[in-house]
Design a protein around this nucleic acid. Sequence first.
RNA 1: GUGCCCAUAGUUUAGUGGUAAAACUUCGGGUUGUGGUUCCGACAUCGAGGGUUCAAUUCCCUCUGGGCACCCCA
Length: 433
Amino acid sequence: MSTKPTTPKKSQELASPKGMRDIIGDDYYKFQGFFEKAQEIAVYYGFSPIATPILEHEDTFMTSIGAGTDIIDKEMYSLKTKGGDQLAMRPEGTAGVMRAYIEHGMQSLPQPLLFYYYGPMFRHDKPQRGRYRQLHQFGLEAIGSEKSIIDALLIKTTIAILEESGAKDLVVQINSMGDKEDRVSYTRELTNYYKKHISELSALDQERLKVNPLRILDSKDPGTIAVNQGAPDIVSHLGAAAKKHFKEVLEALDEMGISYEINKNLVRGLSYYTRTVFEIQEPEQEGIEPLTIAAGGRYDLLARQLGAKKDAPAMGVGIGVDRVIETSWFKDLSPRIMKKPKVYFIQVGLDAKLKSLNVIEILRKAHIPVMQALSKDSLSAQLAVAEKAGVPYTIIFGQKEAMEHSVIVRNMDTRSQDNVPIAELHTYLKSLK
RNA sequence: GUGCCCAUAGUUUAGUGGUAAAACUUCGGGUUGUGGUUCCGACAUCGAGGGUUCAAUUCCCUCUGGGCACCCCA
């Protein structure tokens, strides 16, 4: 077997791809802690886990999210497999969950079905604060009911997750995009309105008028904002059914004491939304434009678009976990797996080192997490590491102890030491608490 | 995708047209059985590639990565 000479790597090749990063140490625990807390809350509210593939057929996203949206037109990682399949890395979670729902015939189960999921999503964006090409979302989906209480349930669960993560005084921005017919008639009226004021719109907004007039509503252009003041209001164009639905959602939010603002300019970028849409912003910070940390809405038409034989009205939300973790209010949620070791194991001398792993194995079986520096030889060096780690007790295992089958347990605070036979070590450590 | 700003050891920062200084961290040692001290030593082809120059980490260009605004979005 011949080994190829190792070519020196250029540092460029050693960098993670743009907008994608390694998650290490404290950051890892933050993610893990958030995911555990979010799952726990979702389960209390009746959601069940689902994990769908990171890759889906590209068409699944094209037909659900919709051509004409930036996510599809500019930001999707698409690839052709060696077998010739046209796949794409998921830019969001809803399409995959709905695909799974239809594929597994879940329409014949008691409705609605409540799912939660979490994991990486991929969008070929230009990275910025809180904006990554590989981003992490925690999502909720409720499929199979058009009842307004479902909308309220998802919003409530989202708020509960964020509050348990440290958020306070959250305000939900909410709007209704109406049913399909409402949207068609409203869009027509809105377009007519803008055409009358076309000279006052920015070049960008004039372009948007051709592609997606709804987007002009949340324009940042000062001239356009002025025009928007007099623009027709979508809420007053809702049909009777959608209006009733929206009113019920708001009543439910009132009942739960959730504060909200009706934002008639809130239009979501994904084209599958109908009726309820909502967003939750991060808290205001000086000189920083607040980011959206959670957003979602109702998508009653999606199932049919994807090929289901009957309607499956549904509601979903995605929480931007990267953004939540970076907020000032995020409190560290330590994951359960992280047990803080209370014992540091020190060995001195060759015999002791050889027997060390046996002692550590005894501790492991007793569920006592242990830190160690087996690679070090000198006692003082190991004590120094234990000191820095802030571990309350050290176990010292040397030549003499190895022969006597005992260890020294040292209290790092008081520096007092006890000689303990290995056979009794387990019970001794338990008694220390 | 467009525009502006940035890039020196693991980290935070000096500095210069003649191949780099410091602090902290890490590693080794002074101390082959007892710790936050102290002392000594080690660790950077100055993000990558190209150009100008006798000479570039320093000037110019491109690329890569990061930040910010726009676009858009979680």
